[in-house]
């Protein structure tokens, strides 16, 4: 049992590290695209690792399935939100500026 708990703790801590890194990136990165990059890392990997960690603790199959489902929904929603923000920013930025940023 304690072996299982250790797995949970390791995965959740790893997820928390990703969330922390994503938050720091969101606050510290210079422009919108790299900020989005940091944010998606936190959402996708952080939440995923926490879900995997909690999967060791579930008591029924359906609960675990629901958690995986929630993760996949968060993935779809998060990537879409980032795509929308990134697209808006890309279309609104003058072309020269974007080229400078990418160089």
């Amino acid at each position: 049992m304690s072996f299982v708990n250790a797995f949970t703790i390791i995965f959740c801590l790893a997820g928390a590290v990703f969330f922390l890194a994503g938050t720091v990136g969101l606050l510290r990165f210079p422009d919108i695209f790299s900020r989005l990059h940091a944010l998606t890392k936190a959402d996708n990997l952080g939440l995923g690792l926490i879900v995997i960690g909690l999967l060791f603790q579930v008591d029924s199959f359906s609960t675990g399935l629901k958690m995986l489902f929630i993760w996949s929904l968060a993935l779809a929603a998060g990537s879409n939100a980032c795509y929308a923000i990134g697209r808006y920013a890309f279309l609104r930025t003058p072309r020269e500026k974007t080229r400078e940023a990418s160089e």
């Binding site: 929904l73 779809a76 929603a77 879409n80 795509y83 929308a84 697209r87």
Partner: peptide, 12 residues
């Protein structure tokens, strides 16, 4: 909004 949102909402 671009193609992705309408693809997503059709699925979701």
């Amino acid at each position: 909004p671009g193609p992705l949102l309408s693809w997503l909402i059709r699925g979701l």
